[in-house]
Amino acid sequence: MTIRALRDDYHGEFKDSLEKFGGAQLVYLGWDKHQMFCSSRAFPLPPEMRFQELLDNVMPEAFGQHPEFNQIDWNKAQWILDNSAFQPDHSKSLTELDIGHKSLLRLVTPELTGYKGAGI
């Protein structure tokens, strides 16, 4: 992992570290097997935001355009946080849930198979 540079003290500055986002942290939200949205997306969120607020206020902005969005049963929704299964307590904050800066939170809804069942 050592980089070969002219000087041994070569380093790059972390361009996207937490303090650069004015009090917010970045959270990426994806909805597995719903490729109507070409990719997961980036949201700057207050670290003290409760999970329930995320469901109520952020999710519609993120995925509300999808024809299946209204069919999501949030109590049955499964989650993957940073590549591990995750069961959030809806009353807790992002920080309390270990949803960190630049964490990737994926929504999984096996019963919803996307537009025409094609994962879209």
């Binding site: 992992m1 980089i3 790059g12 972390f14 361009k15 996207d16 970045l26």
Partner: peptide
């Protein structure tokens, strides 16, 4: 990235730059 992280942490990622204002 893993081979030269000190280089790539410095990338100017447009989306993050927008969100930093």
């Amino acid at each position: 990235f893993d081979n030269e992280p000190e280089k790539y942490v410095h990338a100017w990622l447009p989306v993050h730059q927008i969100l930093q204002g």
